[in-house]
Write a protein that binds this DNA or RNA. Structure first.
Lengths: 101, 101
DNA sequence: GTAGTATTTCAGTAATTACTTAAATACTGA
DNA sequence: TCAGTATTTAAGTAATTACTGAAATACTAC
């Protein structure tokens, strides 16, 4: 999962993911959507592929990118689990708010 | 939100957040939980504070950290919304799988 | 083949990040 | 006040990251 969290940290990459939620797009379309130059876009797409968040397929002249919804859902589920599965505190007592002096 | 996404990108910071899910902890306890040296821990806590994901309160000798559940839930909600609110594709047609030559 | 379009790779650079040690600060209890 | 504990700040370094322009690759249509 580390690669997926890392992938989310960049706003351009989150834009790419959001655009791909609407369906597959060519690399060129993603470049327009993000305002990135080709080489910079490729860099971000590489990070997203490393995280297995997107898939590519060559279609003629184009590279067509799409969301790998499986991994994407796993990621969301993991973050969500943080809300629903609290980790019990260990027994170590902590000073209470009025405790000092 | 950018700061929050950035904060999630580091595994030590995710550990800190998970530990705090179980209740407030002193900086020292968090250092033990993560295996970080004091100065490195402070660095990560600063990032988490910047993202408003954690709060601190001095309690005597200790600094007691806790989750800011509001922001934390906002973050989870936003990620979750990516699954439930697809962005409609624009009208631009894309080449279909069999299209080439 | 050749020209044109789409995309990636390469090599280098600037900015950011995580970390270190040492010193400073904030508090406690005697 | 002093010694001790907890934590942060400061200054520097090494690694990582995002980006650039230029060259290379992959394909299409003639």
């Amino acid at each position: 999962m580390q690669e997926a969290y890392r992938a989310l940290a960049d706003p351009h990459r989150r834009t790419i993911l959001r655009v791909l939620r609407g369906g597959e797009e060519t690399a060129g379309d993603l470049a327009s959507a993000t305002g990135l130059r080709p080489a910079a876009l490729t860099h971000h797409l590489t990070v997203l592929k490393l995280a297995d968040l997107v898939r590519v397929e060559r279609r003629g002249q184009y590279q067509v990118y799409s969301l790998n919804t499986t991994v994407f859902q796993d990621l969301v589920s993991e973050v969500l689990s943080w809300l629903t599965e609290p980790i019990p505190a260990d027994g170590t007592p902590l000073p209470k708010s009025g405790d000092s002096t």
